[in-house]
Nucleic acid binder design. Structure first.
Lengths: 190, 190
DNA sequence: GGCAAAGGTGTACGCGGTACAACTTTGAGG
DNA sequence: CCTCAAAGTTGTACCGCGTACACCTTTGCC
């Protein structure tokens, strides 16, 4: 990897870290892009070169995140029913990103734009899963979409149930809730 | 009703109509709040007195909408399983607002902010349903939330399936899709 | 070491949304 | 009918996000 790429990665990381530090201090809405850029030692314009939106700096998936998703999808046996396969991927994704999950819990729920972006991020994962399921069983595209949407909804239910728990609640609790919700959400027809 | 209230209602309606006219002409993003206000014959400030956001002018539920939801919820027999009750409400709501549905289809999908607000609107309905189900069966609040989230997800699946259909697709088609999705999404445990 | 391309920067702009201090309209009471 | 306070409207100024673009600096290859 050339010096160029190294610098880019470093800048990206610096901006992210600066942003997280400021957000944890003063909340999401209390920090402007201007400040993040200044703290990271770049210009506002450059900030927007790296992240298309302010929310992105908190939530945009790293290449590693995308990779993890692809691997998990690949790992699922073809014989596994769609619902179980999707459940396994979602659980695996959460297990792999526990630190991330804990950090995000501190910010999410405080700002509408941020929450929205978080949902869009879920949508991105959903898109991958939809394509995958449609390929697994091309006879029922509506069913594929439905399975993914339902599984995502179960994730949402688990997330808010966890959010309602006291502040220090461990990520393990969230994992239990997620597992329970996915189990109970299983469609009768699947 | 005094002159004051009449004028307020009229202004609100005028703004809405002006906005819809402009949006259908030039798309959601192609129209600024400034223009809507000018077309409706009020100031930008006044626009924001009536609608808190630009999206609100398209999507904010009228009092009649809220009333319909309350009536539908009231109509459901207590003996009906939660899943069927929620399904009936969602189907009823859609049936009652078919014109609205058709008009919205023309705008939704063209703008992120608008789509987001539409989802938030779904969230508002979800809130009502969640409270209702929790009251119906206080022993399982997580189950109540899960039921509502799953039913909403099914609605979402049906909506996007309908959006993918050719432009002139009738609302009746959407209703069929919605019914199918709700049926297939029924959790095994419910 | 020179040079094109990639990347960073400053500047200016558009738009949504808020705050606020005027100004105008409304309708109730004397 | 007049008065007057409350409700509603307006212009203005401001903030912050996001985009466009022209200009400058850095990079890595020949």
């Amino acid at each position: 990897m050339g010096l160029r790429e190294q610098k880019k990665d470093a800048a990206r990381r610096d901006i992210r870290e600066a942003a997280w530090r400021l957000f944890e201090e003063r909340g999401y809405a209390g920090v402007s892009v201007e400040e993040i850029a200044a703290t990271a030692g770049v210009s506002r314009t450059t900030f927007f070169n790296y992240f298309h939106t302010k929310e992105g700096v908190v939530l945009d998936p790293s290449p590693a995140d995308r990779e993890r998703l692809a691997v998990l999808v690949d790992e699922q046996p073809a014989a596994l029913p769609a619902w179980d396969a999707v459940s396994a991927v979602l659980l695996g994704l959460t297990r792999a990103g526990q630190d991330e999950v804990a950090r995000r819990r501190r910010l999410l729920g405080s700002d509408r734009a941020l929450d929205h972006r978080a949902q869009e991020l879920g949508e991105e994962v959903a898109g991958v899963l939809r394509d995958w399921l449609r390929e697994r069983d091309p006879t029922d595209p509506l069913g594929a979409n439905l399975t993914v949407d339902l599984a995502l909804a179960a994730t949402r239910t688990a997330w808010f149930a966890w959010s309602a728990r006291p502040e220090g609640s461990a990520v393990a609790v969230y994992l239990d809730l997620l597992e329970e919700c996915l189990r109970r959400a299983r469609p009768a027809g699947a």
